[in-house]
Amino acid sequence: MENSRRSFLKVAGITALGVGTKPVLNVFASSGGHVEEPKPEVSKNEKALTAKKWGMVIDTRKFHSAEDLEPIIDACHKIHNIPELPEPRHKIMWLWEDEYKHVFTHREHELVNDRIKHLPFLVLCNHCEKPACVRACPTKATFKRDDGIVLMDFHRCIGCRFCMAACPYGSRSFNFRDPRPFIKEENKEFPTRMKGVVEKCNFCAERLAVGKLPACVEASNGAITVGDLDDPESEVRELLRTNYTIRRKPDLGAGPSVYYIV
């Protein structure tokens, strides 16, 4: 019942699109119109953190065990209302940990030093320069913003999961069922998802927009740094200049924006 109504609304919405949105579009149009009443405007928050091209550097030397990563993962998953689902195959992860040989599959070798071999690495969406997921998406529900962040529009996703097949980093999760009942504590400042859509790390776009750093950065005690890769003066560029860093599967040419100091 609910579903048929929904589809009806959809059709009604499509039909209304031609006529209905006109006045609203007029409201948003910047030029022309009455002199007395200024037109409404939309803008960014003045406090918003911006960059030409966002990037992240993870200093893995500052981590020693899985316990060090736990609060960081928790912070991310808590504020983004990530559910804890009973079935392992339905698992949803934005930020998680894995071993070197799984994270850096192209660099793995048996004789890698002990520290690296047993060190857990943080894994998340790489916010690629040329994201394969964006190329694959048939509705532009996943897209790359001008500042380099690859985002999901949950309103538009049809759940075809082409992006999941396309992502060479396994960074995407699908809502195989309604996640709501499995969210321990709901964060009211961020929506949940509905069943049938894909999700992934959003570089905390909602926090950057109000001048806050990503949650993982805040929880990492300085081990994770984000900044503008296009600004030679930025902190991330300084870190990249002074440390040897690696990226995941650079040979695929996707251009990941997440760098690891090892």
Binding site: K10, A136, T139, R156, C157, I158, R161
Partner: peptide, 26 residues
């Protein structure tokens, strides 16, 4: 089978509403 595989089949028309020639699925 494609419809059966969609997570949000009600939104299938988004493929036409937001045509994306870069996507093979389109």
């Amino acid at each position: 089978f494609i419809i059966a595989d969609l997570g949000q089949p009600m939104r299938a028309f988004n493929v036409i509403l937001y045509p994306t020639p870069g996507s093979v699925l389109f």
